[in-house]
Write a protein that binds this DNA or RNA. Structure first.
Lengths: 148, 148
DNA sequence: TTATATGCAAACTTTTTGCACATGC
DNA sequence: GCATGTGCAAAAAGTTTGCATATAA
């Protein structure tokens, strides 16, 4: 079992939350996911294992995990919530055309963190960096179109 | 009139959109605002001048301005859309306690932009950097509480 | 004049809430 | 055993859409 899963269930346990089978299934999926899932997507996937699971349970668990800092909310380009399950500092490259989100690790973020520490009395818990634009695949497609 | 306002109305005009009084009022408010308004907030403010203005008109105009790149959508901490009217690269410091968003200009962002240009075939249109944590006021309040 | 925008209201989507029952600890 | 969590369903919140009327260009 991955350490992300262990960290999530450990955090739930430490905070006095129960490790129900539904919650474990949600954590298992989140820990394995690299697709920045929406609540609906989590629901679909968990339902494969627990057909009777409720959307309310999914929302509940996502909220608890977010409050514990185990996942991070990111803005869907327009369509509601998405969750970041990768806690390593990184840049989200969000394609405005196909909607895909790619994680780009970068040392440059430590410089941003330093800038925040130095320039303000702000106590930083988490950093989110989103780059909006066209991914290489969509950029190629756009260029092809303009050649018509 | 501010150059932000001019830029917005100019962009609308260039794109073939009409400069209705409602739209101008929306732009006027956005250009002056430093409060990262929600659609509802824009609606309230514009209604002071146009009591009969419709929420649909507000959404319509915000969408058009966003598509033109004159404003940027940012994630409300939880409560729906918020708009960034400050197009200068900066860090949003979002307080998890009081919800306030403070803009912090920073040279460090050009390093992030370079990192994106160098490490991927991504065509970057816009960058959003959100720091989550406690603002100095709320941090002080939290510390006071823990002294009880 | 005429294509675009507006206001209104209804529809839709997403998220939250209340409550009776179930269950992890 | 009991506080917490679950499933269900209804409600609330947020956003989009359709259409008749108004209007900027």
């Amino acid at each position: 079992m991955s350490s992300r899963y262990d960290a999530m269930t450990e955090a739930l346990h430490q905070a006095g939350h129960r490790l129900t089978p539904q919650r474990c299934a949600i954590c298992r999926y989140l820990a394995a996911s690299r697709e920045h899932p929406s609540p609906e997507r989590v629901y679909e996937r968990v339902r494969e294992e627990f057909p009777a699971v409720s959307l309310a349970t999914v929302y509940n668990t996502l909220t608890v995990l977010r409050d514990l800092g185990e996942i991070i909310e990111i803005p869907g380009t327009t369509e509601g919530l998405r969750y970041e399950t990768n806690l390593e500092p990184h840049i989200n490259l969000i394609c405005l055309h196909c909607g895909r989100i790619r994680d780009l690790p970068s040392d440059s973020l430590s410089i941003v963190q330093n800038a925040i520490h130095n320039d303000s009395g702000f106590d930083l818990y988490g950093l989110r960096v989103d780059g909006f634009g066209l991914c290489s695949a969509c950029r190629t497609a756009e260029e092809d179109k303009s050649h018509d």
